[in-house]
């Protein structure tokens, strides 16, 4: 199977998020980025399938937000090829990002396209399903397992409460991965550095992305804190004592 995995960098939520002077976007000057965690799972599931059934894995990403590092890390983990899509602003809508990725992916002979099921900034919809419709491929989201059966794939889709559905689907298909079967593999920095010198990153133009999300941000604001929690202060020891008392009185 020829598996394409679009990845993207998203703001690291461990850092404090600030709003810029327009009041409509994050202040991106000091933002730290990391690979969308679901994309990590998508890449892992792709690599597992390749190891089990053969084929190739290509990681692809739009330029910007420190993406080279993420693409080289994908190569270090086992992606056969990495592709950077250029000519777009790093912060486009998902409609435009999906259109650009579709422009490039449609000539790549993909059997499977694995995206992370969602990201923390999908304001205009999750990328994978948008991409599938631009590619005229069917899609299944919230996937937690994929196996190959001849030219078909058998796919687990998760619902709430631990219930899941099993589908059999013809390829090509786009799958929105919720979780890979295994914990995404770790790759040491030294290996990423080696990949930087040994991997040839292909650069491809985004092409025509004249599509619109059909909406625009009018305001960004931090949720008004209900100020509900009574915050306990003091040393860790003091706080622990107070919490134990609360737990005992409430249970």
């Amino acid at each position: 199977m020829n598996i394409i995995v679009p990845i993207k960098q998203v703001p690291d939520l461990v850092e404090e998020l600030e709003i810029d002077s327009s009041g409509k976007d994050l202040d991106r000057e000091w933002l730290k980025f990391k690979v969308n965690e679901y994309d990590d799972h998508a890449l892992e599931e792709a690599l597992l399938l390749k190891e089990e059934f053969g084929g190739t894995v290509t990681a692809i990403a739009l330029d910007g937000n420190d993406i080279d590092k993420a693409l080289y890390a994908a190569a270090a983990k086992g992606a056969d090829k990495v592709v950077k899509v250029t000519g777009l602003d790093a912060h486009v809508s998902n409609h435009q990002a999906a259109r650009a990725l579709a422009n490039v992916i449609q000539g790549m002979g993909a059997d499977l396209v694995f995206t992370g099921v969602q990201s923390v900034e999908d304001r205009d919809g999750q990328l994978g399903v948008l991409l599938a419709h631009y590619l005229n491929m069917p899609h299944i989201s919230v996937v937690t397992g994929v196996t190959v059966a001849g030219s078909n794939v058998v796919v687990k889709k998760e619902y709430s409460g631990g219930i899941y559905a099993e589908f059999e689907a013809a390829t090509p298909i786009v799958l929105g991965i919720q979780a890979a079967r295994e914990t995404p593999r770790y790759v040491p920095v030294a290996k990423v550095r080696r990949a930087m010198s040994s991997t040839e990153m292909e650069e491809v133009s985004a092409g025509d992305v004249s599509v619109s999300a059909g909406s625009s941000v009018s305001r960004m604001f931090k949720p008004v804190s209900g100020g509900k929690a009574e915050m306990l202060s003091g040393s860790a020891e003091d706080v622990a004592g107070k919490l134990v008392e609360i737990i005992k009185s409430k249970s």
Partner: peptide, 16 residues
């Protein structure tokens, strides 16, 4: 919309 893991709210105006 609740974005960024619930850390930011965003109001969107729809065209049309």
């Amino acid at each position: 919309s609740q974005l960024y893991g619930g850390k930011m709210n965003v109001e969107s105006a729809v065209e049309g």
